[in-house]
Design a protein around this nucleic acid. Sequence first.
RNA 1: GCCUUCGUAGCCUAGCCCGGUGGGGCGUUACCUUGGUAAGGUAAUGGUCGCGGGUCCAAAUCCCGCCGAAGGCUCCA
Length: 633
Amino acid sequence: MRILQLHSNFIVFKPIEKEINIAEEATKEEVRVEEVVVLFTTIEEDDNATLAQKAIDDARAFLGKLKVNRLLIYPFAHLSSNLSQPSQALAVIKDMETYAKQKGIETFRAPFGWNKQFTISIKGHPLAEMARNYTPAPAVPAEAQATCEGKKEEELISAALKAEDTMKSYWHILQTDGSLVPVEEFKFKDHGNLQKFANYEIKKTRAVTQMPPHVPLMKRLEIADYEPGSDPGNIRWYPKGRMIKSLLEQYVSLCVAQYGGMEVETPLMYDFNHPSLASYLNRFPARQYVLKSEDKELFLRFAACFGQFLMAHDAQISYKQLPLKLFELTRYSFRREKSGEVVGLKRLRAFTMPDCHAFCADYEQAKTEFMTRFNLSIDVLSNIGLVKDDYEIAMRFTKDFYAEHKEFIAALAQKFGKPMLAEVWNERFFYFALKWDLNFVDNQDKAAALSTDQIDVENAQRYEITYVDEKGEKQYPLILHCSPSGAIERNIYALLEKAYREQITGKAPMLPLWLSPTQVRLIPISDKYLGKVTELAQQIAVKCIRVDIDDSSSTLQKKIREAEQEWVPYIIVVGEKEIESGTLSVRIREEKGKQENLTTEQLISKISERLEDKPFKPLPLPLYLSKRPAFHG
RNA sequence: GCCUUCGUAGCCUAGCCCGGUGGGGCGUUACCUUGGUAAGGUAAUGGUCGCGGGUCCAAAUCCCGCCGAAGGCUCCA
């Protein structure tokens, strides 16, 4: 049995003529039903009454969710090539109808055996369109979502069926030797995080009812906050947060530049009707922000691809210049995610995305480049403060690609050194032949993708991007899409979630030293020493270390408590002893508040060594705490 | 978008079930305290109880609608 289930504003149908001789009696009058779930139903060989009830039970589950209690059973032969006898089909359809009515559903039915004309208006929400497939005996309902506009029936059906056949994923674990083990057979004993990630991806149930921990943290630490004056998912960044974000942006840009990416800048908005863009958008009906200008419809970019592809389209490229790498750090990319999906810094509608495309001559070149970027991404994240224990990788490809490039995939697996999740498709549906994405698993056991890279085999043609080969002929390059860090906001989300997790395990939560807004907090023991402490601060600050002074009027103990709550890595109380001896008693957060005696020079070199060659920005707030407003209570 | 829960001062929160014009903490401000490594004391300040409507002599409290947030579903190029 195959069912295409559509939540409709209304449907109008009209029987035209009988197609088979056992057709039911019906009048040739137009029937209109409002606010209804329509089940286009095909009865296949061996379908029976049990299956009819199962199908109605499943539909009832949706009726409950959709708050609708009206069903239209619409016999529809075109969903299958394995039809049952018409007499049997009619019996099963009638079973469905009877059972649905028994269950108290207001049930309508279109006549069986007729050629019918219909018009339907489908709701825009995700549950509105569902395709289901039932087989007798071990009934395994396979679900797939159809992405279609809902006008012509052939289109509806083909989209639903295509989605179901092509997009079915087969899940494996890719072991470090390159071999694949079905997920069910893998022993997750030492890979708890991978198991969580696999569960998340394959969609098993999980039950958490808790605010994501990074949300109260981002507010309390005055990093970022929601902005009620904007659209959800557009974030307000306070001075400390802006500094952290800016340092991350600088760092990732620097790493990509060293790798050879040429930084460019491209527009934020694009014309809906540009031919290349239009076909891309049709293929991936994303949720864009739409802008109406005087005479044009524009959308806000949801990735850096458009600008770079249009630029590459116009460029004259020789094979000698490949691989050619373009880079942009988009501030911002926009995706109008559904309201229920926007969360904290994890999923935003406006986000900062580094995106580096490499145009490659062939698979050999693409693979070399892919490996370089794989290493680059792991390196970038580890310098940001996210190491291999913090994330899991998913590798995604078709079974043909695996057969052809098995050694390459094995090399990636070996390089990572931990088992990965593998999603394998029978056929290629997306524009890429190979993709990996690196996923942070948070305190709610949910995963969020950070870095990613893909081998794109479609967009060179779509955007007419060509290079000239040795023979002087035009060729389409392969295009790699890489974000070495993933969205910058999401890096901050991951760092905060990680800090929270460390707090639970008994460590002092903190940001990496190079991202800490205050690296050294000086606390004068009384006003008398403020002058000397200010001199000390200047001495430290000239060495590119962010130092500030708590000159407020509260007690010493309270100032220490507040510095600890701000996650300040080094806290130094300065009084007569220190000024006379020149030795500072430094409270080190990383060592649980242990105090160490250091001279100013020792302190500076200790910190500078740890900062290495990371980008630097000066203190984002006034030197004296008394001069700072409280951005958040 | 759907379902569930929630919305009380800049922040956290009691009160709501059982209607009688809101209580505490943090912060902020002032004064006292000038303190040696995680919350010193006193006082002041601060509330259209998310918005709109209804029931009632009377609504933070009960009912309806709307808006916003979180969780779940779905989605995530």
